[in-house]
Design a protein around this nucleic acid. Structure first.
Lengths: 366, 366
DNA sequence: CCTATTACGCAACGCTGTTGCTAAATTCTC
DNA sequence: GAGAATTTAGCAACAGCGTTGCGTAATAGG
């Protein structure tokens, strides 16, 4: 729910989000921590903390006795004050996770989906799986919604699946509406890779710089986090990183072009030459760094994590040797900290982000 | 000057910027236009318009008599209420332009720079050129500053030129400070391509979507406008689009990698095969669309504009045939509307944007 | 026991945009 | 032609935000 106009409620949400971002990244914090990190006055911090405490989002956690003066009250996030459920819809499997306000994964389960599954079959699987998660827990009033990370193309804004790649029954399916009606919970729909990079950003709080999450899993995609928010592009279609040409006049790709990163990579991988596949991927990653100048590269996806070390090594080497002026061009390369859960967990965090993250200010319409 | 905390002055700046963005894109507007475009209440629009009128930024321009009811007052931007000077520093030339609040170019002049010029020589040329522009005009109180668009790499935030490509005397030069002291005006320093794309965005007002400006001029670069703001990356180094590999094991590039877009393109161009050079560039453009899903592609740069039509045709064709699902994936391809002035004009508009554009809200420090 | 220091809240304030209402200017209707 | 209807736009009071000024509580040191 983007707002177009900026009113005082935006201020409230914005400054509260700053405090929550600090709370996610540190075990405990004091008012002075917030003052320093945000630039707010102590009095403003008092008011923000009072509101967050009233909502049960943060709580006191003792006092600090540093020496002279009145001891400072120590606060901490209340991780189990809010939850969200995340779903990763892949071609053959549905992964469901339960994530708390701090971004920790409390439950993870994978179930198979029927071959060429229909929207109805997915809705059924979602309800069954979510029922299993909520059955043993008392989440009343604390479950903020369900996030769905799915293969595209889709329309994030309208919650519409346009044409899920390789799934025949998915053409212009209003999945968000259907799922909200079927589940009785707010639903957020996004591309899998975009959800994934949100997971990394959310868990790092407010200091996470421009980043890409590279996902290799029956196809190669990239999720972007730019300028403190997910980058989806003009039609929610950003991230088709696998379909960038790295070899003019190379082998024909399913997308119709020649020499796409994905086809070149996959041929090497299918031939068992993981080292070469990793090097090809690394060339693509360096292309992204040259284009976008990113601070973080996160590697994910089942087909990559199966050979995590060779991939990590190849990308790290390329990043450190192929990008000139590496003294100030620092970019860190990591594996996804959540492993195979990253997409589903990120989808859940997108729901949390809508409530407790930095509010959006939409630009003009039209 | 990014602010970390959100206070009421942010609201004022934000909503004023929305109105100004409307004012730039239409000849005249009414209060109801603003209400519809922004979602503000009529009363809030009254207050915003009163403030902008008091500052001389907008003025009444008659009334509209549509039929029944009290006639609506028509407003317009006052283009000559504010100016900014823009400089495009290239390897051998300095281009200076005078731009008004609406983004119109009032004056444009190119002067040669000495071979391998020094910072002092550039400062001298800037002062001379700016003196010539201001001499015949009364700009007192209306000149907001000077924007400099320059080849990188540089550090936008600190106004520091790290290592201007191919210029020996430019290593860690604090150009912004030097120029502010030398010229007595606020100075904004940015990469040439980022300034360029700002020109396109500023002139289109608040409805300009994600975009890239491709610049071919002794090198190939790209300036990005993403999510309503310029994307500079983690170290102001985004845009090295020419150094993305499109031909694995291709010819060696100056950057140390093989098969970069720039070297492949330049070889074709040097061989006189403009059609092939344009097709190679188009492959790179489609790569960007696949990665970032952009709404606008703007072509610029002296070496491209010399053969504008072949380039435009090749890129348009590639965008329309190589990107699948073109029915909803609409991307427009245009030549820079300002031609050779685009970089300098964009640098000037960056200065205007800092004052009258959407204010930034920085994330947490640290 | 007094003082310095640090933490933190209360109260008043200035500034947003919002809400409720009134006034002005025009066309339409009888 | 006079009153009704419609549209525009401002005035006044209000709520909510962060800010400023100042008072109070809690600790250590002398």
């Amino acid at each position: 729910m983007t707002r177009t106009t900026a009113d005082v409620t935006f201020l409230r949400g914005y400054n509260q989000a700053l405090v929550m971002a600090v709370g996610r990244t540190v075990p405990t914090f004091e008012r002075s921590t917030i003052v320093q990190a945000t630039g707010l006055t102590p009095q403003a911090v008092s008011k923000v903390i009072a509101r967050l405490t009233a909502d049960g989002l943060i709580r006191t956690a003792g006092v600090r006795r540093p020496g002279i003066g009145k001891p400072a009250v120590v606060y901490e996030l209340v991780p189990d004050s809010r939850y969200a459920i995340g779903a990763h819809v892949a071609r053959r499997t549905l992964r469901l996770v339960l994530v708390d306000l701090a971004g920790a994964v409390h439950h993870s389960a994978v179930s198979p989906l029927p071959d060429d599954f229909t929207p109805q079959q997915l809705l059924h699987a979602l309800r069954t799986g979510i029922g299993a998660i909520t059955a043993g827990r008392d989440l009343r009033g604390r479950l903020t919604g369900v996030g769905i990370g799915m293969i595209g193309p889709l329309d994030h804004e309208h919650g519409l699946v346009r044409d899920a790649h390789g799934l025949r029954h998915w053409h212009d399916v209003p999945l968000r509406e259907l799922a909200e009606a079927h589940l009785g919970l707010p639903v957020h729909l996004d591309k899998d890779v975009t959800a994934g990079v949100t997971a990394e950003a959310w868990r790092h709080g407010g200091t996470f710089g421009d980043a890409v999450l590279i996902m290799v899993e029956s196809g190669i995609g990239g999720g972007f986090w730019l300028g403190g928010t997910a980058h989806r592009g003009a039609h929610t279609n950003a991230g088709e990183f696998g379909h960038t040409v790295v070899e003019l006049d190379g082998p024909l790709c399913v997308c119709g072009r020649h020499g796409c990163l994905e086809i070149v990579h996959n041929r090497a991988a299918e031939a068992g030459d993981i080292a070469r596949a990793a090097r090809v991927l690394a060339v693509g990653v360096v292309n992204l760094l040259q284009t976008l100048d990113l601070a973080h590269v996160v590697l994910a996806g089942a087909d990559l994590l199966r050979y995590a070390q060779p991939y990590l090594a190849a990308v790290e080497e390329a990043v450190h040797t192929d990008v000139p002026r590496a003294d100030w061009l620092t970019t860190d390369v990591t594996l996804s900290s959540l492993g195979a859960d990253v997409i589903a967990a990120g989808a859940a965090m997108q729901v949390l982000d809508r409530h407790y993250g930095v509010p959006e200010l939409a630009l003009l319409q039209g």
